[in-house]
Design a protein around this nucleic acid. Sequence first.
DNA 1: ACTGATATTGACAATCGTTTTCATGTAGGG
DNA 2: CCCTACATGAAAACGATTGTCAATATCAGT
Lengths: 133, 133
Amino acid sequence: MNTPIRRNTKQRAAISEVVQSLSNFHSAQDIHAELAKRGSTVGLSTVYRALAAMAADGDVDTLLRDDGETLYRQCADAAHHHHLVCRQCGATVEVDGPTVETWTQRIAAEHDFDDVSHTLEVFGRCAQCRAQG
Amino acid sequence: MNTPIRRNTKQRAAISEVVQSLSNFHSAQDIHAELAKRGSTVGLSTVYRALAAMAADGDVDTLLRDDGETLYRQCADAAHHHHLVCRQCGATVEVDGPTVETWTQRIAAEHDFDDVSHTLEVFGRCAQCRAQG
DNA sequence: ACTGATATTGACAATCGTTTTCATGTAGGG
DNA sequence: CCCTACATGAAAACGATTGTCAATATCAGT
Ligand SMILES: [Zn+2]
Ligand SMILES: [Zn+2]
Ligand SMILES: [Zn+2]
Ligand SMILES: [Zn+2]
């Protein structure tokens, strides 16, 4: 019922460090592999648990891929925002959408919906990837 | 390389009929169970394949749940639109967002992104569920 | 209708991301 | 230092989805 207390462990520190060093969205398994590459021996379950906790605490952002895989990213902006992601290379830009936020509220009110939340992601091809093609 | 030809089978007809009869989003397994309940003996693999094909052809809409499960729905509007979904009962309203569409384009242009698409879903609690508590 | 090329089906196994289990280790307040 | 709740990790379990493949059905062309 009450929020569980988080402890500071070497594993979580290592995971957090890796996530911060990766600029784009990455899967739990990606991060686990990267940890291994850097000599860390954190267990895969721990990576999953830590990332889930970080996401629950709002410390990292999540992105659901079409195939259901969850990706994580350490964003610069802690406040609510959305993402513009390159389908090809994964380059990610944090974007703000005040227009969308108000639209969401209005739509919900119009249909008498309460306690509203939303998910919004924009995908495309970045300039760099277009140049290569 | 070329688009595969679709054949009209009793199984697909049955699946399509069930999807149309369910007003909200439902999983492939839900639909398979409903088919069984109605006496149909369509295989689960067939249900998955048919729904994927229908989604690819734009005949049904899909919704990715947080846990990665894919839900399907037969929408009245064939054109691009979004959904306002009740978290509790699943009641779904099709909504149009011209504001969001233009915002998306603008954001993409500002960051020099090409070939843009987006996903947007709004969740909340409908009036009926609020009344109950 | 008959035929043949090819798409479709379905029972089952396999895949794969994620969660659970549970015995052991550890953080951190008192 | 001690205690206890939380965290870890190896392995097994889970669950949605996809692959396999032999048998079957569709449908365009004759
Ligand atoms: Zn790119
Ligand atoms: Zn928003
Ligand atoms: Zn729809
Ligand atoms: Zn849209």
